[in-house]
Amino acid sequence: MATGGRRGAAAAPLLVAVAALLLGAAGHLYPGEVCPGMDIRNNLTRLHELENCSVIEGHLQILLMFKTRPEDFRDLSFPKLIMITDYLLLFRVYGLESLKDLFPNLTVIRGSRLFFNYALVIFEMVHLKELGLYNLMNITRGSVRIEKNNELCYLATIDWSRILDSVEDNYIVLNKDDNEECGDICPGTAKGKTNCPATVINGQFVERCWTHSHCQKVCPTICKSHGCTAEGLCCHSECLGNCSQPDDPTKCVACRNFYLDGRCVETCPPPYYHFQDWRCVNFSFCQDLHHKCKNSRRQGCHQYVIHNNKCIPECPSGYTMNSSNLLCTPCLGPCPKVCHLLEGEKTIDSVTSAQELRGCTVINGSLIINIRGGNNLAAELEANLGLIEEISGYLKIRRSYALVSLSFFRKLRLIRGETLEIGNYSFYALDNQNLRQLWDWSKHNLTITQGKLFFHYNPKLCLSEIHKMEEVSGTKGRQERNDIALKTNGDQASCENELLKFSYIRTSFDKI
């Protein structure tokens, strides 16, 4: 039985969820670079991206490699990797027998973001014989899940209580170790020597080791999670996991709180800001991140802002960003909400898709409305799209047979046209069989910064309504002859009103 693990408890099935942008060198404390989270699957090609990484700022997932063999891993080693800020997950990587050479110096898994409450997941690794993470000293947050690894031993010899604050939620089941077939031998045991430290858990006094050649490092209890030197002297209180010299914040392997210019500090002093819960960055760093993602459509890219001495992905609820200094300031009234469309555009074809934009005031991208039916549609669209004030790209209304009016965009005031449909149009209306009105132009103002209007096959939309939009939106004169079809717009509506004058002759039985 794995020490510190839980057996036999019912657990939810383990679901495996399925960018080499360097964020800056980590400095003297770390020998390499800070790398983003990685999802490495199918083959070993991307694994080489770990070569210079000291910190993975995010998670590391290595999974679904069915053609790899043990010899493929023999020359692979990433000794610079010290810390993973989120979680480490391995799933069905064939041929991998140990992690001792792959990650010989991995010391800390912070667990800032977890995989279903777990910071370390080893699942269905069919050839893994031992973990071998002999320098792993601290899992700051989260638990361990090690399950269905039929060859995995050296679990009962690990004292997880020396690595985690609590072992109650560890789930370590259905491994070879369960069948008591392992016969784990710690260093020196074969020669009758006791080389590794022994600890007591559940009444068992057991030597602690990761492999037959690597003991588990056990520091004096007084050192807590700070770690200790090879001689057993406690590291500085700002260290986490390990250090090369005692009581020196510049000799830590990793930091308990924050890293700044080669030393570990309790908090980031001005003019620095907390970033990702582990390091200090200056304003320029946060500003660069903001600008890199301002026009990016890459998933996970955030326009970072500053709030409460932190550089964070977005302002919290009730705050909006001051564009001059990136500071989050309290909103006066309802907060603006910028919604970034991942692929640059979004099609609204149902109430469900409209709900995804609920509360958005600025759309960074283009909207395509293609709704053919739905219950209580006008009210639903207004509830979900009615706060949109600005669209950076274009607005396209296409084959939306259920629409009679666009009044559900009740606050839309600006279409920038930074991206144009077919390279020309910022407003595009095609084949809307029941569209009769755009907006009530006596109450609604709309500016279209650039781009043209396109109207074709809107049989109940009168040309007068379209011409009014040209005047109000500032697009009059931009359109070419064929942009607004004269014969297919309003051709099934009563669009022309003329005053009919009647004269009559009164007659009676005795007068003409």
Rank of each mutant, 00 (worst) to 15 (best):
residue 259 Y to A: 14
residue 314 E to N: 08
residue 118 Y to M: 00
residue 47 L to P: 02
residue 64 L to K: 00
residue 332 L to W: 13
residue 85 T to E: 02
residue 297 R to P: 08
residue 129 K to P: 00
residue 193 K to L: 03
residue 283 F to V: 11
residue 29 L to M: 07
residue 216 Q to W: 02
residue 99 L to V: 07
residue 198 A to Y: 04
residue 71 E to Q: 04
residue 259 Y to H: 12
residue 321 M to W: 11
residue 113 R to P: 04
residue 157 T to L: 02
residue 30 Y to L: 13
residue 49 E to I: 10
residue 156 A to R: 14
residue 130 E to S: 11
residue 159 D to A: 07
residue 216 Q to R: 02
residue 186 C to V: 00
residue 170 N to A: 11
residue 100 K to M: 09
residue 97 E to T: 13
residue 160 W to Y: 09
residue 57 E to W: 02
residue 52 N to V: 15
residue 176 K to R: 06
residue 132 G to A: 15
residue 223 C to M: 02
residue 204 Q to Y: 03
residue 278 W to K: 00
residue 65 M to G: 03
residue 53 C to K: 15
residue 261 D to K: 10
residue 55 V to N: 08
residue 203 G to C: 06
residue 315 C to V: 03
residue 199 T to L: 09
residue 261 D to N: 10
residue 59 H to F: 03
residue 166 S to H: 12
residue 184 D to N: 13
residue 230 A to R: 14
residue 193 K to R: 11
residue 153 C to I: 00
residue 325 N to V: 06
residue 209 C to D: 01
residue 67 K to C: 02
residue 296 S to K: 07
residue 144 V to Q: 00
residue 55 V to T: 05
residue 30 Y to C: 11
residue 104 P to V: 02
residue 143 S to I: 04
residue 154 Y to T: 03
residue 157 T to Y: 06
residue 103 F to Y: 01
residue 116 F to A: 00
residue 328 C to T: 07
residue 100 K to S: 14
residue 189 T to Y: 11
residue 134 Y to G: 08
residue 60 L to F: 00
residue 56 I to D: 00
residue 307 H to V: 06
residue 291 H to T: 06
residue 297 R to Y: 09
residue 29 L to T: 14
residue 327 L to N: 14
residue 75 D to L: 10
residue 314 E to K: 07
residue 297 R to V: 09
residue 248 D to Q: 11
residue 88 L to S: 02
residue 50 L to N: 00
residue 195 N to G: 11
residue 218 V to T: 09
residue 205 F to M: 07
residue 213 S to K: 14
residue 45 T to F: 03
residue 42 N to Q: 00
residue 329 T to N: 09
residue 308 N to Q: 13
residue 182 C to F: 04
residue 110 R to V: 08
residue 114 L to V: 15
residue 165 D to R: 12
residue 298 R to A: 08
residue 239 C to Y: 00
residue 213 S to N: 11
residue 320 T to W: 10
residue 135 N to M: 07
residue 60 L to P: 01
residue 137 M to W: 08
residue 186 C to W: 01
residue 179 N to K: 15
residue 109 I to F: 01
residue 39 D to C: 04
residue 195 N to L: 15
residue 188 G to P: 06
residue 43 N to P: 00
residue 174 L to T: 13
residue 307 H to Q: 07
residue 223 C to F: 11
residue 313 P to Q: 07
residue 255 C to H: 01
residue 98 S to T: 07
residue 52 N to T: 15
residue 42 N to E: 01
residue 329 T to W: 06
residue 219 C to T: 01
residue 224 K to D: 10
residue 201 I to H: 07
residue 33 E to K: 11
residue 38 M to R: 13
residue 162 R to A: 12
residue 198 A to P: 05
residue 48 H to C: 05
residue 320 T to G: 09
residue 90 L to E: 00
residue 143 S to E: 06
residue 50 L to Q: 00
residue 129 K to Q: 07
residue 46 R to Y: 04
residue 234 C to L: 00
residue 261 D to T: 15
residue 75 D to M: 10
residue 265 V to T: 11
residue 112 S to L: 14
residue 286 C to D: 03
residue 233 L to N: 13
residue 275 F to M: 06
residue 202 N to K: 05
residue 36 P to F: 15
residue 120 L to P: 00
residue 68 T to D: 01
residue 183 G to W: 15
residue 283 F to W: 06
residue 129 K to Y: 03
residue 183 G to N: 05
residue 250 T to D: 14
residue 240 L to G: 11
residue 264 C to T: 00
residue 104 P to A: 03
residue 184 D to H: 14
residue 242 N to E: 12
residue 64 L to P: 00
residue 184 D to F: 14
residue 227 G to N: 02
residue 169 D to E: 13
residue 282 N to M: 14
residue 139 I to Y: 02
residue 174 L to A: 11
residue 44 L to C: 11
residue 206 V to H: 14
residue 215 C to V: 05
residue 40 I to R: 00
residue 215 C to P: 08
residue 65 M to L: 09
residue 312 I to M: 02
residue 294 K to W: 10
residue 163 I to E: 00
residue 66 F to S: 00
residue 205 F to N: 15
residue 164 L to Y: 09
residue 137 M to D: 00
residue 79 P to Y: 03
residue 170 N to D: 08
residue 260 L to C: 01
residue 212 H to A: 10
residue 257 N to S: 11
residue 80 K to R: 10
residue 326 L to P: 08
residue 229 T to G: 03
residue 170 N to Q: 05
residue 242 N to T: 11
residue 312 I to P: 11
residue 115 F to C: 01
residue 116 F to N: 00
residue 124 E to Q: 02
residue 268 C to L: 01
residue 77 S to N: 05
residue 151 E to C: 08
residue 295 N to S: 09
residue 299 Q to S: 05
residue 192 G to P: 06
residue 293 C to L: 05
residue 119 A to D: 02
residue 188 G to D: 07
residue 324 S to M: 04
residue 224 K to F: 07
residue 332 L to M: 12
residue 53 C to S: 00
residue 164 L to G: 14
residue 38 M to V: 04
residue 39 D to L: 00
residue 149 N to F: 00
residue 254 A to K: 05
residue 142 G to W: 00
residue 255 C to A: 02
residue 121 V to T: 07
residue 215 C to D: 05
residue 189 T to S: 09
residue 179 N to M: 08
residue 62 I to P: 01
residue 218 V to M: 08
residue 250 T to M: 09
residue 45 T to E: 15
residue 101 D to E: 11
residue 105 N to E: 05
residue 36 P to S: 08
residue 169 D to K: 09
residue 53 C to V: 01
residue 188 G to E: 09
residue 107 T to Q: 00
residue 182 C to V: 01
residue 192 G to S: 10
residue 45 T to C: 13
residue 332 L to S: 13
residue 242 N to C: 06
residue 224 K to S: 09
residue 71 E to P: 12
residue 182 C to M: 03
residue 37 G to D: 04
residue 50 L to P: 00
residue 131 L to W: 00
residue 94 Y to L: 14
residue 316 P to K: 03
residue 242 N to V: 07
residue 227 G to S: 07
residue 279 R to N: 06
residue 104 P to I: 01
residue 172 I to L: 14
residue 227 G to Y: 04
residue 309 N to D: 05
residue 191 K to G: 14
residue 165 D to Q: 11
residue 224 K to Q: 09
residue 86 D to I: 05
residue 115 F to Y: 00
residue 185 I to F: 15
residue 159 D to S: 05
residue 49 E to R: 05
residue 167 V to M: 00
residue 302 H to C: 08
residue 234 C to G: 01
residue 232 G to W: 02
residue 236 H to M: 04
residue 305 V to C: 10
residue 298 R to E: 03
residue 177 D to R: 10
